[in-house]
Amino acid sequence: MTTRKLMVVTAGLGEPSSSRMLADQLSEAAKAQLSSPDTSVDVETVELRDHALDIANNFITGYPAPKLSSVVDRLTQADALVVVSPVFSGSYSGLFKSFFDLVDSTALAHIPVLMGATGGSPRHALMLEHAMRPLFSYLRAVVVPTAIYASPEDWGTGSSTEQSLEQRVHRAARELGTAVRDSPRNGTDPTRIRPDFETLLHPPTHH
């Protein structure tokens, strides 16, 4: 039996937070895609607000606290990541950025990442493309094509936008499953990985 490690990082500040709600939905769909009769999935969810003081102190002292250091170590050993941030001032939150500033620029190389964000208006959806995707490209992660943005309209019971969110979540989870199976970290020759031409021809749109 193979065990996959799925690490979920959410920067929501409320309790509960919409970012955590989206992270849970994404991780549930991703777990379903990564699971098989011979593969189990270990999901760990990290709420960055629980480590906010240690993250701030790290910038002052230059050294991470043991708990924070352990989180970063487990992050870099994961088979896949789900990352979700609320939108603040048109970008990801400072807490989200500060945490990933602690990660070495090569430590996430080849790790598949599914990105998500939440905000108060649909007009902030492009933050995922102009801010978050470049961050993880810099960290050399493999970011799946579909990024998930959820605004308040997406949580309405029985609404068409909710159905659209569910469809987008499952599409992104399928892409993450494919990326994990094709990952060089699993011994796959990266030169054999082929682009998803259907996605290239019909890129996902954000709602």
Rank of each mutant, 00 (worst) to 15 (best):
R174N: 07
R171Q: 14
T188V: 11
G156T: 12
S159G: 13
P184D: 08
G156Q: 15
R174W: 07
V180A: 02
Q163D: 15
Q167A: 11
R181G: 10
S164K: 12
P184T: 04
E162D: 11
T161P: 04
D189E: 11
S183H: 04
E162T: 15
R168A: 00
D154Q: 12
A172F: 03
W155A: 13
D154M: 15
T191H: 08
D189G: 03
T191A: 10
T178D: 09
A173F: 02
P152L: 07
L176A: 06
I193S: 07
L176G: 02
G177V: 00
L165P: 05
T188E: 12
L176D: 01
D189W: 07
P152H: 10
D154P: 00
H170D: 09
E166D: 10
G187P: 09
L165E: 09
S183Y: 03
T157K: 15
P152S: 06
Q167L: 11
D196K: 04
G156M: 10
T178A: 11
V180M: 04
G187F: 04
V180R: 01
R171V: 03
R185A: 04
R168N: 04
L176M: 08
A172S: 06
G156D: 11
R194H: 08
D196E: 09
S159V: 11
G158I: 12
S159A: 14
R181F: 06
G158K: 12
D196R: 07
R174S: 09
D189Y: 12
G158F: 13
R192M: 10
S164E: 12
T188P: 02
G177F: 03
P152A: 06
A173G: 04
D189R: 03
S183W: 05
P195L: 12
H170Q: 07
R168Y: 01
R174T: 06
S164W: 12
H170M: 03
P152M: 12
A172R: 03
R168F: 01
A172I: 00
P190Q: 06
L176W: 00
R192P: 05
R168H: 05
R174Q: 04
A173T: 01
R194G: 01
T188S: 07
Q163R: 14
R171I: 01
N186M: 02
I193C: 08
Q167C: 05
R192N: 13
P195I: 06
R171Y: 00
D182M: 05
A179L: 05
H170N: 08
V180Y: 03
D154T: 13
T161F: 06
T178M: 10
R192V: 13
A179T: 07
A173Y: 05
Q167S: 11
Q163A: 14
T157V: 15
V169N: 01
G158P: 08
